[in-house]
Write a protein that binds this DNA or RNA. Structure first.
Lengths: 243, 243
DNA sequence: CGTAAAACTTAGGATATCCTTAACTATTGT
DNA sequence: ACAATAGTTAAGGATATCCTAAGTTTTACG
């Protein structure tokens, strides 16, 4: 596990404050997301997620390693360093606070917050993000149910199952949906499948067939592809917390 | 007045929607500001305002002319086209709405809104800016008193005098102060010299001496350099409009 | 365990933006 | 008319990011 440092004298520890470009922040976010399981992240997966050629990722990843944002052993994948993880979480916090703020304070429809936040997250100062968070009561999650990292980079991700993994009969609460497909979000919104909604799985047809759900009095059915995007947890009575 | 078009086939009329980079928007803002008098704007003045070498401006200005954002005759200065003016006013609107929003909705101190807006103005969508403006009641001016262009690019600039141009005895209302010097803004804030404040010019010492002002019950004095940054208008009784 | 497929890297370059210095040219003021 | 001022072109450099093509390493598995 020989370190990669070459002739370059200094490591240029990321200045922490800012100075990260938009694309770099995007790399870090992607690597964070892909590496949540703790394993090293594969070049190809990063390339896939960012829609870039694998060779581009190799190059960028080397630079990020030189900046101390991640550790990198050629052919073995990358892993964020503490500095890199902090930077990723800071960007994630920006993104999600901005999404929440747009939704709550400016009444943005939830299918459009992602795109706007994607641009603003690279331009907003920490102060702005903190003020936004304070103004809307320090929400714990964004409009799609994704947890918002705290100022000092702590985020608690729940273990969740997706709606298509459960058999008929389960009563669940929607916790989170994926945030980057506006059309899907609009559709889910129409169906009232939003974080917090309580859903009963009425039936589930085999071989990729439709899943029938009851939400309040409505009964509707969705395909497994859509169901896979809806993350849920078992319903626990709010007045009688587990244990 | 031979046109500059070279071998390049198309003129690529600015796509109107966006696609302007941050620096380009800054050029347009600068040219707009310098050209308010209607005259052509000198290369050197643009360079001075943006802290660039004059040669850099020559280069950029040629590109902007090719994009149809301004008209440019070498050695004769530049003038914004309608397209260019609209783009400049859009950026100005963004900047000032954002400043106002930060101040009103997020309680930013007025000396810090400029810097934040300077970054956000290049990233915010028109929709965001419009929502911000609506949320704070479509203000007519930003926190420093600068008028906010309307959605469709109309801005009414008043004729103003600066505080150091007036003789003792005048009663005036502060309309506008320059926005880019945080320390000055903090100081003006401490003195309650903010847009809307009513000020009586008590005395004015000659040869660049101090100007003595009464604001409410306070009497204070400031130097001419500072006074030159404070734009005022004569007080007209609000209940009895002029004429 | 050897080899083909998959994953990954390096080499070499293209592109896009914006900026600079140095040297030259045009305009202007006296 | 000519020096001072203003402005221009030429040539190139800094960043930052991406790509294709070709080669190398790892992995899967017969």
């Amino acid at each position: 596990m020989r370190s990669q440092r070459r002739g370059v004298a200094i490591a240029e520890e990321a200045t922490e404050s800012d100075s990260l470009t938009g694309p770099v922040e995007d790399y870090l976010k992607a690597i964070y997301a892909l590496g949540s399981s703790g394993a090293a992240v594969a070049t190809n997966d990063i390339a896939g997620r960012l829609a870039l050629a694998p060779a581009s990722v190799s190059g960028m990843v080397r630079r990020l390693a030189e900046q101390g944002l991640l550790s990198y052993e050629p052919y073995r994948g990358v892993r964020l360093t503490d500095t890199g993880r902090r930077a990723a979480l800071r960007t994630l916090r920006r993104h999600r606070v901005i999404e929440s703020y747009l939704s709550t304070a400016l009444h943005y429809p939830w299918d459009r917050v992602h795109k706007e936040a994607e641009r603003l997250e690279h331009a907003a100062s920490d102060e702005l993000v903190d003020r936004m968070a304070a103004a809307i009561g320090e929400p714990a999650t964004d409009p799609h149910g994704a947890p918002i990292p705290s100022r000092d980079g702590v985020m608690d991700e729940k273990e969740l199952v997706s709606l298509d993994e459960l058999a008929a009969g389960h009563g669940v609460r929607v916790v989170r949906v994926s945030d980057d497909n506006p059309e899907m979000l609009r559709y889910l919104g129409e169906l009232s499948i939003t974080p917090g909604a309580e859903v009963l799985i009425v039936s589930k047809a085999p071989f990729g067939g439709p899943i029938s759900l009851r939400i309040g009095r409505e009964v509707l059915s969705i395909g497994p592809e859509l169901a896979a995007q809806v993350m849920v947890e078992p319903i626990v009575d709010a007045d009688a917390p587990a244990h």
